[in-house]
């Protein structure tokens, strides 16, 4: 009995240490954003005289609202397109046997081997040729189909009972009808979880948006933040305020849908 207890104490000690390591930087970011100019350079763990000054400065320094809006447009559009293309593709892969299926699976899996850095130059040239630089569409288009999303959707479609699909077909339901009226309502929570992961990834994306947008007014928040970090103004309070603002949407989603998110990351793996 005593032995079991000591193991539990050790377990909790390990887990609490890990949790502190995981969330401390976030805590430090938030409290730094509320420290005033004289306190920011001290190691106090709770702001003695909390202030909004840093936030005011951050909003004055960068078009934060505009950039948050850009991020929101880009992430939403990307998520919708990735879900749409993967629902259609996933349906075809589960529903039919056809010539070239193996080839398509191979092509899909091989994209894991292509790092974005290996295709960024031709893509950059193409986006500029078709005039979509400085445009949210230019950020979204190269990521409109995601292998990760297709294979995840395929996995969850595979477990859907074929008897239900056959029954719907006999009732004269079209393929799109089967997909959107029969399958989708039944695996809604899986699709929602996947959508959340895709949204978070899109929100956090930064290399490609950095190449496509040069003007702050067109850039997502990550790009604004990056140039703020690199600008070497010694305004750490405001920088932490801007950083806090940039991850509020993600943290809110996480706060409300935490279990969903963790479960689906475990199920689908990482991008």
């Amino acid at each position: 009995m005593k032995r079991i207890k000591s193991i539990t104490v050790l377990q909790h000690f390990l887990l609490i240490m890990m949790s502190i390591i995981a969330i401390f930087p976030l805590y430090w970011m938030i409290i730094s954003s509320f420290k005033n100019e004289s306190e920011i350079f001290t190691s106090s763990f709770i702001p003695q005289a909390p202030t909004w000054q840093n936030y005011l400065y951050a909003f004055a320094e960068m078009p934060i609202i505009q950039m948050l809006f850009n991020s929101f447009v880009v992430a939403t559009l990307m998520t919708i397109l990735q879900l749409a293309t993967s629902l259609l593709a996933g349906y075809a892969l589960v529903r039919w046997n056809f010539k070239g299926k193996l080839l398509i699976f191979t092509l899909l899996s091989l994209t894991w081997l292509i790092p974005f850095q290996a295709v960024m130059i031709p893509n950059y040239v193409l986006i500029n040729q078709i005039g979509l630089n400085e445009n949210p569409l230019g950020i979204v288009l190269p990521f409109a189909a995601s292998t990760f999303a297709i294979l995840s959707i395929y996995q969850s479609f595979k477990s859907f009972p074929t008897a239900l699909i056959d029954a719907a077909r006999l009732d004269g339901e079209s393929d799109l009808g089967i997909l959107f009226r029969i399958i989708l309502p039944n695996i809604r929570s899986t699709v929602v979880s996947l959508g959340i992961i895709l949204f978070i990834n899109a929100w956090n994306e930064y290399l490609w948006p950095m190449l496509v947008t040069k003007e702050m007014e067109n850039a997502p928040i990550q790009i604004g933040l990056k140039s703020f970090v690199n600008s070497d103004v010694n305004m750490w309070g405001s920088l932490m305020a801007a950083t806090t603002i940039s991850c509020i949407p993600i943290l809110l989603i996480y706060l409300f849908l935490q279990k969903h998110i963790v479960d689906s990351f475990v199920r689908f793996g990482i991008k």
């Binding site: 978070i200 703020f228 970090v229 932490m240 993600i250 990351f265």
Partner: peptide
């Protein structure tokens, strides 16, 4: 699990800044 996961969902720029 909820706490362990937080570093995973933060943007690289956010983590870099902090």
């Amino acid at each position: 699990r909820a706490m362990f996961f937080i570093p995973m969902i933060l943007a690289p720029v956010t983590v870099g800044a902090i």
